[in-house]
Design a protein around this nucleic acid. Structure first.
Lengths: 343, 343
DNA sequence: CTGAAAGCGCTAACAA
DNA sequence: TTGTTAGCGCTTTCAG
């Protein structure tokens, strides 16, 4: 299709002719084989330079070589949470000359398996997964093929996968405790996307913190925010319009916290005077909004970086030993929480 | 490397055996060739399904078929401006089953040529460029090879490229006029990244608007913000600490406007009471910050979408006719601008 | 309508 | 140290 005898990019074959050697010598030189006579190597390099040769990654990896591509599977690009992680990945990768094959599962839920396989089959040397693991079957498949992959912000129940996570539970516990220590007793919870491990942990920590402080979990104070701003905006009224409004709300992530704040503002409620709001993630917006959001920081960029680093290591060393990394969350106190109004 | 006789993904060869036909028949069926007997097609499809066959994109495109990949070249991922454009691209692409090969030029400035070539050689069927065109030579090369590409938010002086732009000049003119009409006379300008077309246009429109309203351009009121938040933060003091502080500041993009606002706040200046600030872009944060940023909206997501759509069209129709699309900017009045304080 | 054969550009044994 | 020979998985003539 693209090969219509056009000027078409030069191949190693062209370089070989130019340099007066066989094309396997060119291949060897270009892929860093050490036993090539110095003078030959020079000739080849010069010829390649002169012709403006750029390797065809497809062919290279099809032939069993390296593609220098790693695949990344994300749910969508519309979330700065994903953006931050990607940034970390990109930063790490750019130091090692790898490229990104980016897949967005987007609308086609449940198609992760196909996506993963496509990436696997299409030359990527490794896979970074940021998607909710609806079906973990393909993880097994990946493992069986010894295909390097790393899970980001998700845990594999089997414990067989390399993962990069944060202390979701501790972070959420701390957030809840912080609210309690400020004096709050009626604390609402805007939950995350059902099925996600992080969502579950944050909820369970919320409940645990309440219990540990002698507070009962009132299920009517728990609403679903689905980890989105929209979700938070939609869920908040259930909490805010109650006769006995909670004095504080813990949203399972920043996006939904922003939604909650917006809902509060729409009702003329002041944050934090009338209601305290705490989030989770510390996405860039958290420090820009008004009031600045108190939240639990997840080192998203760092997660991306470490995951990428781990993956590269797996690729280089052929090591498949599952490793679990857990990064620390950190309570970031800003302006959206205060003591409850004393009526 | 990956082909260690492992269970390895099934190939068309496996499918062929399973279906009892030759593998070229499988290829034809799978790539939508129409002259395949219905019953044969069924058999093949069933076999493929059963084996969980997923095509190897590399091989396919190497053999002259379609890779279903399009390359995207961006400067970096750290900017929500890029993120928004990517989102648009992704949205459009996900409707047509294309995948993204993402390249971040990042640190290696000037290496765009190599990147572009790599993408070209590596199976992408088209290229979306969001990078500042430092060297336009490779555009010529792309054109020569009839390789489909679209420039986003950049214009090719030669007029030979398909581009998606916005009315930078008009938008900036309108923004400046808006400030003038509010009563401002001393209007500072925080400029964008030198060398970028959009930066130049915005500045020139700023100057033109001033001139048209009988105001002289005071060069000491023009500082460089480099299109970053940091840059805005660093540049603002020059303006804000002047004895005759400008009563309004037009920042060439939102990021730098946010920097300006931050600088103002650090000095105890209120926005917009003490100084009005207007931005450009309308990135997501603009409507979240406090005060909400008055700005000139660029339809970033839409730009991404249209560019992708244009590229796909080029690919499908083999048309190389350069087309220029210019989307409208729009003044979005929010809370960061007001009349100057009447001292 | 379908099979056989020839490559796409490159890497990787295998000799020389 | 370098050339020769096979393919990788797939598309595409070219014959049937």
């Amino acid at each position: 299709m693209r090969n219509d005898k056009k000027p078409g990019a030069p191949t190693i074959y062209d370089v070989a002719r130019e340099a007066g050697v066989s094309y396997s010598t060119v291949s060897r030189t270009l892929s860093g084989y050490e036993f090539v006579k110095y003078s030959t190597r020079e000739k080849v390099l010069r010829a390649a330079e002169k012709l403006g040769y750029v390797p065809n990654l497809q062919a290279r990896s099809l032939a069993g070589g390296r593609s220098n591509m790693i695949g990344v599977l994300v749910p969508a690009l519309s979330n700065s949470y994903v953006g931050e992680i990607l940034r970390g990945i990109d930063e790490e990768l750019s130091e090692s000359d790898y490229n990104l094959l980016l897949y967005t599962t987007h609308r086609r839920r449940g198609k992760e398996t196909t996506y993963a396989t496509t990436i696997t089959n299409s030359g990527a040397e490794g896979l970074l997964l940021v998607v909710p693991l609806t079906s973990a079957t393909y993880l097994a498949a990946l493992r069986e093929q010894d295909f390097p992959y790393v899970l980001i912000d998700q845990s594999d129940p089997s414990g067989q996968s390399t993962t990069v996570n944060t202390t979701n539970w501790q972070g959420a516990y701390e957030a809840t405790r912080y609210l309690i220590e400020l004096g709050h007793r009626r604390i609402g919870f805007v939950s995350g996307l059902a099925g996600l491990n992080s969502a579950a942990e944050r909820y369970s920590a919320y409940a645990a913190a309440l219990a540990d402080h002698g507070l009962a979990v009132d299920e009517s104070l728990v609403v679903n925010g689905g980890f989105t701003r929209r979700g938070g905006l939609a869920a908040a009224p259930t909490l805010l319009d109650r006769p006995t409004r909670p004095t504080a709300i813990f949203a399972a992530n920043d996006l939904s916290a922003l939604g909650v704040i917006e809902a509060a503002r729409q009702r003329g409620l002041r944050v934090p005077e009338d209601v305290s709001v705490i989030g989770f993630d510390d996405i860039p917006q958290a420090s820009i909004v008004y009031p600045k959001l108190t939240t639990v920081r997840q080192p998203l960029v760092e997660m991306g970086r470490q995951a990428a680093a781990l993956l590269l290591e797996q690729i280089e060393h052929h090591s498949t030993e599952p490793r679990q990394i857990t990064l620390e969350t950190e309570l970031v106190v800003r302006d959206s929480c205060g003591p409850p109004a004393s009526p």
